[in-house]
């Protein structure tokens, strides 16, 4: 299947991509294309918007309307695209630093508005492009080149951040859980409102090496061994969930979407000023 998806949706002249050997981003990028393939939408209307960082190089390889913006600003640019033409399906590919640090303000405000964007956060717990500095999702006590004595920062849970900021579809997938992640991505894109999929990636080059997490296969196996489905997690105690990662849908509501609300204002003036 991958082969057909790559043939269909990728800019093959741009391959091989720049991701390091074993980087989970390549899998997640392919998963997005697989999810798009399942959608009954005009593929010409799909826009992929990214910021800066490893994650954000993904847009360059995917054959849609693609825009690689400035650091942290993908969601703000995507907001403009969606407001200007609500018929477009606007998808953001971003990273943990891009979405939750430099772009954190845009992330929470887009969620608050519940504008119809789908945000895939390729979350590898580190700044990879600049060489391994700790990010807002680097767990406390882990190491990065700018946390040589261990990270004293509290980390963000991207899914919780999205939920409590007002996102109306929130889920978490991983590199290992391919089929599940594709299904979550598909549902996120179909959801009318601000949807976020926290995509657990793996950075063997920096995060893995700095924190003795082994090689790429070890990091992916860790995802396999420690994932708990969100439904099952509801029946577990906090103690049982310690050290686990919750995957699957974590939040969903049907609050009215932003551009639909704005359209109602516009509709008041159809046929001239009343």
């Amino acid at each position: 299947m991958t082969h057909e998806i790559i043939e269909k949706y990728f800019r093959k002249d741009m391959m091989p991509h720049i991701f390091c050997p074993g980087c989970g981003h390549g899998v997640l990028m392919k998963d997005i294309a697989c999810a798009i393939d399942k959608l009954d939408v005009d593929k010409d209307k799909i826009c992929l918007v990214s910021g800066i960082g490893c994650s954000s190089r993904a847009t360059g390889y995917m054959d849609f309307n693609t825009i690689h913006t400035t650091h942290g600003r993908a969601i703000a640019v995507a907001t403009g695209i969606k407001m200007a033409n609500p018929e477009l399906m606007v998808i953001v590919i971003t990273g943990d630093g891009d979405a939750a640090a430099i772009g954190g303000n845009h992330f929470i405000h887009a969620a608050r508005r519940n504008i119809d964007l789908t945000v895939f956060v390729f979350n590898n717990n580190i700044y990879g492009m600049t060489g391994g500095q700790f990010s807002p999702t680097t767990p406390t006590d882990d190491y990065g080149t700018t946390a040589p004595y261990g990270n004293i920062d509290q980390d963000f849970d991207i899914a919780d951040l999205a939920k409590y900021s007002g996102a109306t579809f929130v889920a978490r997938g991983s590199v290992y859980h391919v089929d599940k992640t594709i299904r979550l991505m598909e549902r996120a894109m179909l959801h009318k409102g601000f949807s976020v999929v926290d995509c657990m990636s793996n950075c063997p080059t920096y995060y893995g090496r700095k924190n003795h997490k082994g090689k790429a296969p070890d990091m992916i196996r860790w995802q396999k061994d420690n994932a708990v489905d969100s439904k099952k997690a509801e029946t577990m105690t906090d103690e049982e969930l310690t050290g686990k990662i919750i995957i699957g849908e974590t939040h969903h509501d049907n609050r009215e979407e932003y551009t639909a609300k704005y359209q109602k204002i516009k509709d008041r003036f159809v046929g001239g000023i009343k």
Partner: peptide
């Protein structure tokens, strides 16, 4: 939410 977002959004609007 701020001016950085504002200019980013108009760039998006123009791209559309």
């Amino acid at each position: 939410e701020d001016e950085i977002a504002s200019i980013a959004a108009i760039i998006g609007g123009s791209v559309a």
